[in-house]
Simulated scan of single mutants.
Amino acid sequence: MKIVITGGAGFLGSMLTRELLTRMDAGGAPLEADGITSLDLAPSPVDDPRVHSVVGNLADQTLLEQAIDHDTVGVYHLAAVLSGGSEQDFDLAMAVNVDATRALLERMRAVGQETGRPPHLVFTSSLAVFGGTMPEAVPEHWAEQPDSTYGAFKAIGELLVNEYSRKGFLDGRICRLPTISVRPGKPNSAASSFASGILREPLNGIASQCPVPHGTRMWLSSPRTAVANLVHAMGIPAADLPGWRGMNIPGICVTVQEMLESLERVGGQDARALVTDVPDRRVMDIVCSWPGDFDVERMLGLGFVRDEDFDDVVRQYVDDHLS
């Protein structure tokens, strides 16, 4: 039996693949899976005989049928056009984030009907589904009101996943992930990419620009914690899930100023001096519309976890990528 990861060749997909393999070695993989299929535009960088790559466009029906077959017990749907890219290219975002998501759900529905075993799905959504005037800490059942193309299309995806789950076509879990920081590698098209860039680049001796006010609140998670929560989400019994499958995954509320203070404590004054303020209205219009804190007590009760503090998040990056 296998788990499929769309976007499996990316940073988060690769990390998730490695963690699932570790769980398989220990006999504790979700749904007792013993293999992984990565569906992405490039092969998975993880070199393991249990990992199979299906390379191509998620919207290609033939590729979907190759990737998701009768051996599929679960799917992680990570692939998406990110926030900045969605705002710049509406049609591409619609094709990938909405049309391809529905094609994926239809393929899972067909497999479930053929096998009598609806596959589990973890759909990675975003706090961008929220917008408008919000309280200091967003409660669990706060209504979605996206202020961006990315948020709107993620909200559509959430509605589809919830309806396919309600109908019994699949067993979905909607994980609204915090912004992940610190991501290794190069900046991506996410409007929140700076949340890694203002730390990663200075820690590597490279200048970086901060595009938002220092008082901007961010809801953040380290990569390690985000992956641990994705693995956990797949294995939660359906009876323990809310009727509405949307879940605000735990993070920590940190201002940009506090992030820069953590950078200085961990990386020193020279690293902090490499960050300069260059306001970017395009980034502010997106990121500053997102909530910065959530009530996640029930999610913690379901076994999800959060980082202890942001200094530790920065140290994780140093330990994993610079040591």
Rank of each mutant, 00 (worst) to 15 (best):
F11G: 00
L12G: 00
M15G: 04
L20H: 06
L21Y: 14
R23V: 01
L31P: 00
D34K: 15
T37Y: 14
S53P: 07
N57I: 00
Q61M: 12
H70L: 10
G84T: 01
F90T: 00
F90L: 10
A100W: 00
A100S: 07
M108P: 06
A110C: 04
A110R: 15
Q113M: 07
Q113N: 05
E114H: 07
H120M: 05
L121R: 08
S126T: 12
L127E: 02
L127Q: 02
F130C: 06
M134K: 06
E144Y: 09
E144I: 05
A152P: 04
L159F: 12
L159H: 14
L160H: 11
L160G: 10
K167C: 03
L170E: 03
C175R: 01
R176L: 06
R176W: 03
P178M: 05
V182M: 00
V182G: 01
R183M: 04
P184N: 03
P184V: 02
G197T: 12
G197N: 13
G205C: 11
A207M: 10
Q209I: 00
C210I: 02
L220I: 04
L230M: 14
V231Q: 07
M234H: 13
G235A: 12
W244Y: 14
I249V: 15
I249S: 07
P250E: 12
G251S: 06
V254L: 06
E258T: 07
E261T: 12
G268S: 01
A271P: 09
A273I: 00
T276M: 04
V283F: 11
I286E: 07
G292A: 13
E297M: 09
L302F: 09
G303L: 03
V313Q: 11
V314F: 08
V314N: 07
D319I: 04
H321Y: 14
